[in-house]
Design a protein around this nucleic acid. Sequence first.
DNA 1: TTACCATATTATAATTATTATTGTCAAGTA
DNA 2: TACTTGACAATAATAATTATAATATGGTAA
Lengths: 144, 144
Amino acid sequence: MVKFAMNLVLEKYKDSGFKMTPQRLAILEYLEGNTEHPSAEEIYRSVIRKFPTMSFATVYNTLEMLVSRGRVMELSIDAGKKRFDPDMVPHHHLICRRCRCIEDVFEDFSIDVSSGTKRNFEVTGHHIAFYGFCPSCQDKNDKG
Amino acid sequence: MVKFAMNLVLEKYKDSGFKMTPQRLAILEYLEGNTEHPSAEEIYRSVIRKFPTMSFATVYNTLEMLVSRGRVMELSIDAGKKRFDPDMVPHHHLICRRCRCIEDVFEDFSIDVSSGTKRNFEVTGHHIAFYGFCPSCQDKNDKG
DNA sequence: TTACCATATTATAATTATTATTGTCAAGTA
DNA sequence: TACTTGACAATAATAATTATAATATGGTAA
């Protein structure tokens, strides 16, 4: 089962022009279909279970390569750290103010900044962060 | 002129329940009306000119206090670091992909996530990051 | 298959960003 | 005045990221 998934990932990236190594495969496999928007540390903690010699540098190198090749998105939605999203379909996010969990929103909101307010920017895309409280945090009183 | 501005800031914060000190005043004065969305470091670099003994801890402490009292917004729109915005009027941002400069957008986009996609989140607000190229970066070729 | 080369990996150090701790000092108060 | 509170600075600690250099490995061509 796992082997099958690994083969799928391997197929997908084989001809992408970058070297496939066991470490990279493990990172890719972890990211494949992942909707948790993991940070570099979360990725590291996961793959080191399979590759105890894995280093942070490899995680960052691989992520940087994937981002530069448009395979993964770097998200700036968590204060002070980067998060990564393997889903390149344009989408938005729901962010819980309390537990900081993040959910995807695949609704298409076509928004146009009026020419007056866009200050001659050439706008190429947008991302909406919806802030609020996730189901399990709505019950709890302390919403600070 | 500067003295007058300082007095205005002083007036504004005097009765807010927190102690006003020269250092805090300098930080507040730097933030007052600032639309640069500065990071902690930029604030530090500015105020240390007036207060050479200023420490980073004071900057962070003051910012944390201001954020917790709803005087300043903490922005997660720059990878790997926090930025701060003294303008508490809800608004959005234009972000240059190249030089990373940030401009305010005071247009009101009323967006509703359909109940289907919002996964039982209680949505309390949203922020739109418009990505693109600022006027001075549009000319330059290398948009990487 | 082997040898070679380019590049990936690791270890490590350095840098940047942030948070925590502690002692001191100053302002306000009993 | 003595006491209390909290702000400040110095410092250390931690977290997040980037850079460097030596080694190991995968892919390719002979």
